[in-house]
């Protein structure tokens, strides 16, 4: 057995594989929440992305990479449209963000629009004809340890790294990111500076939705890969917990996503090695871990310094302070 079949390496690799959709969704939610909008509808947006991506992979013809590219874009666009609905409700109509987000999940979620559209389009009948495959970057997939960890993933994993890097740069190194954060921290100040609070919140809510949609495409064209109602199995909610875990920072959210992915896939990994642990306990582990991590994060002294955007969840009404 080569060193690449080491248990630690396998757990890390599957953690990355199963954590990647959470990276997209939680980084998207970081962007949205940084602008002061809480969108609890991540699960619904992911499922819309999954359904639209699955539709595209069946109905678009062309080479494999082209179809997958289009499917990802279409999945992202579908989820962004759903996010637009949320933005309209909470930014323009000032509906309570928690209630609107819950409504969004019920509307688009596993028993809602995503299921309705997928069943109307008959997506469940067949496996996706185009699916993402593992690459061997530079042909180094068998290199000891770093091969499986860095050079033997599907293209979405690499894309998620770009997204994390670009988001960090956008949030903390660009003027647009500064504007975005100021809208999330103090919309009245931002408004006085001449920023268009509503527009910034609209745009970033939709960007967050688009990334959640990419996370959904990962399910319907990679993990499952066909349509199943409610196929994301609550991962959208985990993404919301990861935002808190990651102190509203993309890099930390990614680490959290990989940890969750590792816990969620531990059962499969151990089963392949004939280690028998109660499958129910393993199923429960990621949810238990999320609670434990939330306890640690919520209680630590770091929370004050690194906490949530100050105006998170609050509507902006110019004439009222």
């Amino acid at each position: 057995m080569s060193i690449n079949h080491n248990l630690l390496v396998e757990v890390a690799v599957s953690g990355m594989f199963y954590g990647t959709p959470l990276v997209f969704a939680s980084v998207g939610e970081v962007i949205t929440e940084r602008s002061g909008v809480l969108n609890l509808g991540v699960e619904g947006m992911m499922l819309m992305g999954a359904a639209a991506g699955s539709w595209a992979s069946i109905h678009i013809s062309g080479s494999n990479p082209w179809v997958l590219f289009c499917a990802t874009i279409i999945g992202a666009a579908a989820a962004a449209l759903v996010a637009l609905l949320h933005a309209f409700l909470v930014v323009t109509l000032r509906v309570n963000q928690i209630v609107a987000g819950l409504a969004l999940t019920i509307f688009a979620g596993g028993a809602g629009l995503s299921s309705f559209l997928a069943n109307s389009w008959n997506l469940a009948a067949k496996p996706a004809p185009h699916q993402f495959q593992e690459l061997s970057v530079f042909g180094w997939k068998n290199a000891p340890i770093i091969g499986p960890l860095l050079f033997h993933h599907n293209v979405m994993v690499y894309f998620s790294w770009i997204v994390v890097g670009a988001t960090s740069w956008y949030l903390f190194r660009t003027r647009a990111g500064l504007h975005l954060r100021s809208v999330g921290e103090s919309p009245h100040t931002a408004d006085a500076m001449g920023l268009n609070v509503a527009r910034i919140r609209y745009v970033n809510t939709m960007v967050g939705g688009a990334l959640a949609g990419v996370g959904g495409v990962y399910f319907s064209l990679l993990i499952v890969p066909t349509w199943v109602d409610g196929m994301t199995q609550g991962r959208g909610w985990i993404a919301l917990a990861l935002v808190i875990f990651g102190f509203w920072r993309p890099g930390l959210a990614m680490i959290g996503a990989y940890l969750f992915g590792a816990f969620a896939s531990l059962g499969l990994t151990l089963q392949a090695r004939n280690v028998h642990i109660s499958p129910d306990l393993l199923d429960a582990l990621p949810y238990l871990m999320t609670i434990v991590v939330l306890i640690i994060v919520s209680n630590s002294g770091a929370r004050k310094r690194l906490g949530a955007p100050a105006a998170l969840g609050q509507p902006f009404i110019r004439d009222e302070r």
Binding site: L85, F88, L89, L93, R94, V95, V99, A100, A103, L104, I106, F107, A108, G109, A111, G112, L113, S114, S115, F116, L117, A118, N119, S120, D229
Partner: peptide
Amino acid sequence: FPAGLVGTLQGLLLFCTLGGEGLARY
């Protein structure tokens, strides 16, 4: 009558009444 239609209708009802309620306050 595909699965999901009921959930979609429930969601639409929720959106429209919530939105209307929001609108009525202004």
